[in-house]
């Protein structure tokens, strides 16, 4: 009975692709294709149908030996159930924000949360410095502390229009609307072609579209 279409035998996390398709920007076929990617990532270390932090890092950096402030932050934002692992629903809902067709406000909100390291509702100078230093270290780039400070000074001069030393959601929104390139990493063109990248989804598909 290899080809039993009984929906109760759907893979874990993909029991109801129609519901996920309704609540995200993905079509049912795209959800099914995304599940192929999820399977690949979630079976890299432990084949349990869930993505742990190590598997996430492995997929991002192709190595599990790297400590990354950002990979941690992205993982934690994906992990909306806060249990240290990603199920397919969390994965699909989070990646939906990165779809080229996702509303820009969702991208602005997600990026704000990403950079609001301490989740205080604003991005403070110390957090920006921490992220700049982490990015430079990651890419092996060396800038003096003076140069880093002056980059941050200039950024706050522009972004912190209320002059209170922090960037709130409204200021963040204004900044990224003036500089759309700051949101470039919030859109993944791959998601537009996900059904052609993972065509094998058709073998498990529940829909004809």
């Amino acid at each position: 009975n290899c080809c039993d279409a009984d929906s109760s035998k759907q893979p874990r996390g993909l029991e109801n692709p129609q519901v996920l398709a309704t609540e995200t920007v993905f079509s049912v076929s795209e959800i099914e294709a995304l599940y192929e990617l999820f399977k690949k990532i979630s079976s890299a270390v432990i084949d349990d149908g869930l993505i742990n932090k190590e598997e996430f890092q492995l997929a991002l950096f192709k190595t599990n030996k790297k400590e990354s402030l950002f990979a941690d932050r992205v993982f934690d934002l994906f992990d909306t159930k806060h249990n240290g692992i990603l199920d397919f629903e969390e994965f699909a809902r989070a990646l939906s924000v990165f779809h080229p067709n996702a509303p820009i406000d969702d991208k602005i909100q997600f990026s704000f949360q990403l950079y609001d390291l301490k989740q205080q509702g604003f991005i403070e100078r110390q957090e920006v410095k921490q992220m700049v230093v982490a990015t430079l270290a990651e890419s092996g780039m060396n800038l003096s502390d003076d140069v880093i400070e002056s980059i941050i000074d200039k950024t706050f001069e522009e972004a912190d229009t209320k002059h209170d030393g922090k960037i709130d959601k409204e200021e963040w929104r204004n900044l990224v609307l003036r500089h759309p390139s700051l949101l470039k990493n919030m859109t993944l063109q791959y998601l537009k072609d996900i059904t052609t990248t993972f065509p094998s989804f058709v073998f498990h598909s529940q829909v004809d579209d």
Partner: peptide, 25 residues
Amino acid sequence: QPTSMNAFKLISMSKGLNLENLFED
């Protein structure tokens, strides 16, 4: 000039924030 660069532009180039890597082998 690095000082004319927006700090967030720099941060957004971090590998950990570029999720296209998830799709690549």
